[in-house]
Design a protein around this nucleic acid. Structure first.
Lengths: 154, 154
DNA sequence: GTTGAAACGACACACCG
DNA sequence: CGGTGTGTCGTTTCAAC
């Protein structure tokens, strides 16, 4: 995991569709070398995938919300199939604190969100926070590329 | 915004580095047609950007957390430059409820997270939830591509 | 939206440090 | 082993329809 790898990761976080040649020019090495590095980074699981970031409001998903859930331990088994199946759940984390799960969701309207919350309450007590506005939108982590770092599996 | 557009958006959310030709084959139209559609979707702001999804744990950012903040209204002006500057803040939303801001952050360790929370407390009262595990990782929204939808700006 | 030609980029190989 | 340079193939782009 040297400076070149970090430069590649930063560039791919900013624009995942950048060409190998463009990356090669920025890193002052050849395109085959870039290609080999990206293959390695992906095989090591450092690069998970590449995804287009969409503006969901323009696609009529006007409501974004965070839902906190006190997941009933007895219903844990049925919860994981549930969260992976509902496409409106963009993220789901098991966390410390009074509520054990945080879900990030998008819906067409508050009505549909309400229906979803009702379904979710089968799994435990919920607390919903609707998003007014977003100042930082799901951005990538800018890595310091002026020094090497050690990674778990190089 | 017809079925072909939705197919393209779904494909790009799954793999942003997919080739135009591959998209063309899947949608049964020519590559120049795909290229024109993507250009339009990007100009309309429906496609925001393309980003590589990284495994931050393997890059030594072991701690992911949600921080709730009761932002002091008097310090609002100084808050927005702050959140956009600190790279560890991956997302920041203004929300309903007792706390007005939710921040998603990643840090190298709980110690560094603690230092950050101290800095954040200059802006108001905080409540931190550290992530144990993630069952749904920041995935894209699968759009129903069996029927057309109307968008705000076509 | 389609086609065809030209420009461009990606990949595979042999070679070099 | 990881990088370079060339050649070939596939892809993107542009013009004309």
């Amino acid at each position: 995991m040297d400076k070149t790898d970090l430069k590649i990761l930063n560039a791919l976080q900013t624009d995942a569709r950048i060409s190998l040649k463009s990356l090669a020019d920025q890193c002052f090495i050849s395109s085959p070398a870039i290609s080999a590095r990206i293959t390695r980074l992906k095989k090591n699981g450092i690069i998970r995938d590449y995804q287009a970031n969409l503006n969901y409001e323009k696609l009529n998903y006007h409501i974004k919300a965070y839902i906190q859930l006190q997941l009933d331990p007895a219903k844990k088994e049925r919860f994981y199939p549930f969260v992976t199946t509902v496409p409106n759940i963009l993220e789901c984390d098991c966390v410390t604190g009074e509520y054990s799960q945080i879900l990030k969701v998008v819906f067409e309207s508050t009505q549909v969100l309400d229906e979803f919350v009702n379904r979710l309450q089968k799994f435990g007590k919920t607390s919903t926070q609707i998003v007014f506005s977003t100042s930082v939108t799901n951005r990538g982590l800018k890595l310091p590329d002026d020094q090497d770092i050690k990674s778990d599996n190089d």
